[in-house]
Design a protein around this nucleic acid. Structure first.
Lengths: 207, 207
DNA sequence: TCCGCGACTGACCATACGTTCAGCGTCCTG
DNA sequence: CAGGACGCTGAACGTATGGTCAGTCGCGGA
């Protein structure tokens, strides 16, 4: 069942992983546009040319790096979405997953933000749209589906589920972003309470 | 009181305005990183060199363009923030201001998103942080102050006002972004209801 | 009408970046 | 131990972009 890994395969995977990790760190530091192949290579401890042995070009490098990280995020979240629980708990579980994932993968956060919105000439924009945006949309759509289900059950009020999902995802992303930049961030639970409280009950005080 | 405008000044202001408008259109089309001076010049109908008569370098161009647009946005919002009204109305007024402003200034939206998060080498990041981010933070802080006031009055629940402000601003920004990309966006009022409903009362159905 | 000033132009320059490839060292094989 | 295969290297190349500046041209004043 387990495919036998030859020595070469192990080395290859290790190289690929090192380069992808370096890519994330550099993008985290300089931002998507200013991350050069030179700096990525140095960060990974290889020569510039080596990267091209494993990735066709810069675009594929970024794309693959993004994919392998977001796949991990999606798995965490799917676990929360698929289980059948009241929407309150679901929201809390999803937000908790985001908080801890980005807490552990700070570097990825910046790349994630950059790819939400495609840049560059029309051709590249189209390619990014085809390869990375679906991942983002998919996430939003899955969340929207969960919200829709809760609406049908009468757990929450009826509104445009997709836009609602976007609101919640981006709002919480902003809080997480702030959190990652704080010198002494509060407990994860504190921010989690803020987000879920806001999402579930809004800001208005109930008498 | 009114400073007399010589003919030269009028011409100058017109040029500056044309170039800034072109800058926004190109950034809206290609994104911040891929917007070249060449293309901006063509869009403005002037030669590349002309831009440098009015702006020191690319950075100053982007910065000034951003500033003059965000100043207009801030003015609209301040009007809503300064008046003394219950928080419900304030929130609605602010969100309405955002919706209509970005509806009328679609081009600016992309630039606005790009500058939230500084890119490039450390030096440029620092400069952007000093010149553009304060505008963004200022907006968040003003909104946070309004929320804080409402908390003190007992109108809304107590939480971290700044993070709450970020959540609301970014959440609504996401909805506006989606709206701007829709083929046939609904009434402004529909999206406005979605946002204010979410912010004030959350998603949970009240029995 | 002629002159000179200055706004404007766009070919040109320096630089930086992605990508390539001829050669090097290393390790396995026979 | 010799030979060769292969992963890796980094100097070199082409291209694209921000920025410059010598030259052009239209306009206003003499």
């Amino acid at each position: 069942m387990i495919p036998p890994k030859s020595k070469e395969e192990v080395v290859q995977e290790f190289r690929i992983r090192s380069i992808q990790d370096a890519t994330m760190r550099v993008i985290a530091r300089k931002g998507m546009a200013a991350a050069t192949m030179q700096e990525i290579a140095e960060e990974a401890g290889v020569a510039k040319g080596t990267i091209y042995l494993y990735f066709r070009d810069r675009e594929e490098l970024v794309e693959k790096t993004f994919e392998s990280a977001i796949t991990r995020l999606m798995e965490t979240i799917d676990a929360a979405l698929d289980r059948d629980m009241p929407i309150e708990e679901k929201v809390r579980a999803i937000m908790a997953a985001h908080l801890s994932f980005f807490g552990e993968n700070r570097e990825f956060f910046r790349l994630y933000l950059s790819l939400r919105m495609p840049e560059g000439p029309a051709v590249r924009q189209r390619r990014q749209k085809q390869n990375c945006q679906p991942q983002y949309r998919l996430r939003a759509e899955k969340f929207a589906a969960a919200l829709q289900q809760a609406m049908d059950r009468g757990e929450i009020r009826r509104m445009d589920a997709y836009k609602l999902a976007l609101f919640i995802i981006e709002g919480s992303t902003a809080v997480i972003f702030e959190r990652l930049n704080e010198e002494a961030p509060p407990d994860e639970a504190t921010d989690l309470d803020l987000i879920t409280g806001m999402v579930l009950d809004g800001i208005r005080k109930r008498s």
